[in-house]
Design a protein around this nucleic acid. Structure first.
Lengths: 286, 286
DNA sequence: TTGTTGCTGTAAAGTATTCTTCAGAACGGT
DNA sequence: ACCGTTCTGAAGAATACTTTACAGCAACAA
């Protein structure tokens, strides 16, 4: 543990302090470290001393000036606040910290945490409601890369409910699907950087046909957002020249988990039927 | 509870923000609230925007100016720190602990941690070595669900190197691909529960043709393991009747990250060529 | 293409903050 | 009571910070 915080310094130096400086240091420690984050004037007033007294104290503690003192406080605070999860010393045994598995995973977990503090559970619940309503048809579509996630979503959603359509990745076929879209239907769009023009048009047209758009995008937000009823902005930066789709996967899976439990009886029936059919085609082994 | 923190305001206003303002608000939320406690200049630099952009954002949020914004942050911080039970570990705002977003994510992060302490970095490095050797052809294949992950892997690998083939999901076409497989080639197989019979046969035959098998499977381990040179056993349990493929995605992305940096010059060239071709087809928008 | 709108940064003006100097106050020792 | 030392704050100089005005630019629509 780094035992060299500003507070420690203060306590250590306390015997070398003048009376008013002691009074001041008391105030600082009182609600540490917030009191030190305002202006020197505010701190001086709070402690009933003059600003030069504050300036002298911080110099006595070894800081070059009040700003230096403040910067140090902020850094401490940052350490304190940042999550214990990301600060785990070593995840992978026998691997140096800089092994890509470590750095990559740190970034991924950071993304997950960050994303989860951004996401609005109401938004999530709204998406569930739309997707579990069997009166609405559901269409699923994704871009060049995200198509794979759209497929993933489709493959599972298809099990929980009826009336799910996967829109082919070939955009020239899209008008045929749009023909099928009618008021109240739901179109699930995966669109992360780089945003595809054709996808924007598709969302626009679906929206014109009064369909509800559920959008999975990144923190920079696809332009489709303006047509969307529900938007999930996923964190996607990792130490790589590509983006990470882990948070997108996470929210997708969480949605599916919720949906399958929503009408569990129905889902269960469908899964059992599926099992029987798999058995009969002898496709899988135990 | 008065949930009206600066962070909440930011999240609420996000739709009214300009692109650079979004970028800025990201940085603020990233290590909230510390990043907002420095000078406006420092914050601007951290977010790669100009100071007026910061000034405009805080005014948009309803503060009279940057100092006002900062004062509010300090007050919040004071509340947070002095309150006995810091609610910081709650990830999702306004949602009960049992909200599926919370429970699901906890499980997912547990999986990641668990998986990472299981995985052997040497195994990882060996996979990298095999996959970056351009003398070996690479074939990629996945099962009913994992096919989507195989696609994801293929789409990216295709950018870093030549000689990558995606094996069609229709197993009756597989013999044609096997014809192409020769000694030293690499076949990447995604096979998690329920293990598919046909996939086992495919791996077996590939192995008989002296190909190296890289296997992504789950902790219960696909029978393909006995033919595999490299095995990644992913943790896949989550509170859902389906399995989670987040760790599989993670290791896949980490591998790709490593591969793209392995021969970065080559990768870069290929990516640039790709960009040019995308531009010429005007497929994407900025 | 052209005009319009909205986004953004430069630069300069305006404002607040920090630091230094210096003089007066307090205290202890003689 | 006197002197020397130490402590303290007022005031202004120096510095840093924040805001505003304006012009360039890009995106979009006509």
């Amino acid at each position: 543990m780094l035992r060299n915080t500003v507070a420690d310094k203060l306590r250590k130096e306390i015997d070398n302090l003048t009376p008013l400086e002691k009074q001041l240091s008391d105030v600082i420690l009182q609600n540490y470290p917030v009191s030190g984050l305002g202006s020197i004037t505010a701190l001086a007033e709070a402690a009933n001393v003059s600003t030069p007294t504050v300036a002298r104290l911080v110099q006595k503690l070894g800081f070059s000036g009040f700003p230096d003192f403040q910067r140090t406080l902020r850094e401490e605070l940052d350490e304190t606040i940042s999550s214990p999860l990301t600060k785990r010393d070593k995840w992978v045994h026998n691997a140096p910290d800089e092994h890509i598995l470590n750095s990559f995973t740190k970034a991924a977990i950071d993304n997950i945490r960050q994303f989860l503090s951004d996401v609005d559970p109401k938004e999530f619940d709204r998406a569930c409601k739309l997707l579990s309503d069997e009166n609405r048809r559901v269409f699923v579509v994704g871009g060049r890369i995200t198509r794979t996630l759209a497929d993933y979503f489709f493959l599972h959603l298809q099990v929980t409910r009826t009336n799910v359509t996967q829109i082919a990745s070939n955009s020239s076929a899209w008008p045929h699907y749009l023909l099928e879209v009618s008021k109240g239907d739901v179109i699930v769009v995966y669109d992360v950087r780089r945003y595809e023009n054709s996808m924007l048009r598709l969302a626009q047209m679906a929206s014109e046909r009064k369909a509800k758009v559920i959008l999975f995008t990144d923190q920079w937000t696809s332009p489709i957002a303006k047509y969307a009823s529900v938007i999930f902005r996923n964190r996607i930066s990792v130490p790589s020249s590509w983006d990470s789709n882990i948070t997108t996967m996470l929210i997708t899976e969480a949605l599916l988990a919720k949906l399958q439990e929503h009408d569990w009886k129905n889902t269960k029936k469908r899964m059992e039927d599926l099992e029987v059919m798999f058995d009969r085609t002898k496709f899988f082994r135990k």
